[in-house]
Design a protein around this nucleic acid. Structure first.
Lengths: 189, 189, 189, 189
DNA sequence: CATGAATGAGTTTTCATTCAT
DNA sequence: TATGAATGAAAACTCATTCAT
């Protein structure tokens, strides 16, 4: 009774999705360094399955955040088109980015980490988020709203760092500091 | 003459200093979570010596940074007295703080960590650095140079985070972003 | 057919049994505080396997002795039914208990230990062996063959202690002393 | 200024006594396996001093208990002379022995241990306590008060074991069980 | 393809013991 | 002789990773 290939593939995809959802949840609770076993248990699969689908931890981390990263990137042109000024668009976009970061405990640290295994995530950022942010920054610079000397990458790393929360420095604090940083960018213009 | 205490004490002090130096170096390379054994090897001592002098990792981390923290704190009143304006003093102090942070890779992360073993370091900051910074912030607020809504603690955590460096986000980037953050504080005034 | 579960489970069971056998042997030689690594080596498994199957030392100790403890407990009602007098039944049961103890060097000490990790074993005794012994003691007391003032728990602890053997105080000595203790119980009646 | 030898020797003796007192106290609290450092701290000396005076742990343990052992041994002929019957003398002597054992937590276990380092203590028992006890036992046997088949050594080991106390099996329980054992000896006569 | 038992390297931590002073 | 800093072997425990089924 040879199974139709499509069924298998669909099942495999479901497994993969389950792992991603579990990993996302565990990352929120424990950070991206959480034990593989915890993720496997949460997903209801064996650890082997995790390793099959995501040979390295970075692969898993990357996959977990790829969709949200893409969504975030896509927001840039949309905001630019809708907003009254480029800086307003930038502000809106950064708000969304921050929201993304503070919801995923540990990702900020992951972005700032020099763990060689997290290169993929870095690459993903460089390839999608940085250009998106750069578009906005360039528009702001063109409108003379921010200094042209600030690179999108550096700004995003800074924002990523500011979003590393903890006791006595929580979500709201991170949001305020990022807003302050943006204000500093504008003033520099 | 049961013992020439002075000699022994001097030797012990030398050992202790050697451990501190080794730990500082290893922290720069590997962060404050570096294996105790690595520090012992670098210091040329047994692990037991580390544990004798610094029973917990936090004790070691704290000791490594205590002197510089104290120095940094002492700088605040001095700058306030010398500077043309409170904000200039604040800027100068933050420069020194950043210098301290970027030199000690991993300390920024340590400050932001919720690792229970790092409470001592937290306490040290709260007890010395935060009041020093608060003095400057209060002076700035009194001179209407910054918004009164920014707490010294939050600002320092933010600066600490901004100083988590890595590939493509290095010392100079951190310094620029901190300056931008400060500019944002001023603008808010 | 994602997995032939039965085979795996059987193998796991075999591993578990092997660990139990190895632990039993090592306990005889070194006592229940023997290094985990020694047990792992004797069993031909990694230490991780021990920890997987028996997260705490107490879990392992308990598992090693559970079967024999249950068997011993089950003997009590049987002997009571078969024997000419309650005291004869008690004597027979204590013989079996002693046999159990002297075969497992170190268990007597384990029973007497206040090591918090051995609570499980204590609990196991209290839940199974003590009631079994109490049944016999009560019957003896009812028949006026022993003094009613002796608690089953205390008697078993005493017997456990008497069974801590060593050079110049071996199995036969322990047996004789336990018999003497029992004789003392009877005399008190 | 050459010190008079006698002064030095007296000082050394004082040190030795202090160590013995400290060791006795620590043994009561932690058992004879207590860390050497704890004893040194309690005695207010360095660990080196302990090792100088008592190269092995057994030397220390033995020295700690030697005086009391001697005292206990000396009690035997005295009780035999004073008592109405040999068995009464034996009972009194055993009471004293038990008192000695239950006051020194861990000594009972030490007596029963096959730790090769505790041979000295064993030897001390064999040389002093066993003969003392044997005198009493022999007298009892001669008076037909106990069975002649019980060796003093075995009886003392048994008593030592019965005196290993712990939670739920305390001093009073040990005393009762020892009394029961003695009763058993008598009955056997 | 999925499973999860097994592995063992890596880390922390404790303490007996030594030895320079 | 006394000191106690230093040592390092020993033991516990964790978790990433492999692989037989």
């Amino acid at each position: 009774m040879p199974e139709p290939i499509g069924v298998r593939r669909a099942q495999a995809q479901r497994t993969r999705s389950g792992v991603l959802a579990a990993a996302a949840a565990v990352f929120v609770e424990q950070g991206v360094q959480a034990p593989v076993r915890d993720i496997a248990e949460r997903a209801g699969v064996g650890v082997g399955t995790i390793y099959r689908n995501f040979p390295t931890r970075a692969d898993l981390v990357t996959a977990v955040y790829r969709h949200q990263i893409d969504t975030c990137a896509a927001l840039a042109p949309q905001l630019l088109a809708e907003s009254a000024s480029p800086f307003t668009a930038l502000t809106g976009w950064v708000d969304a980015f921050v929201e993304f970061l503070v919801t995923k405990h540990g990702l900020g640290a992951a972005l700032g980490s020099d763990d060689p295994g997290l290169e993929n995530l870095h690459a993903l950022m460089l390839d999608t988020l940085v250009p998106a942010c750069a578009t906005l920054l360039d528009a702001c610079a063109a409108a003379d709203e921010v200094s042209p000397g600030i690179s999108a990458y550096t700004l995003m790393r800074a924002i990523g760092n500011l979003c590393i929360t903890g006791p006595d420095y929580e979500r709201a604090d991170a949001q305020r500091m990022v807003a302050t940083l943006l204000a500093g960018c504008r003033r520099a213009a």
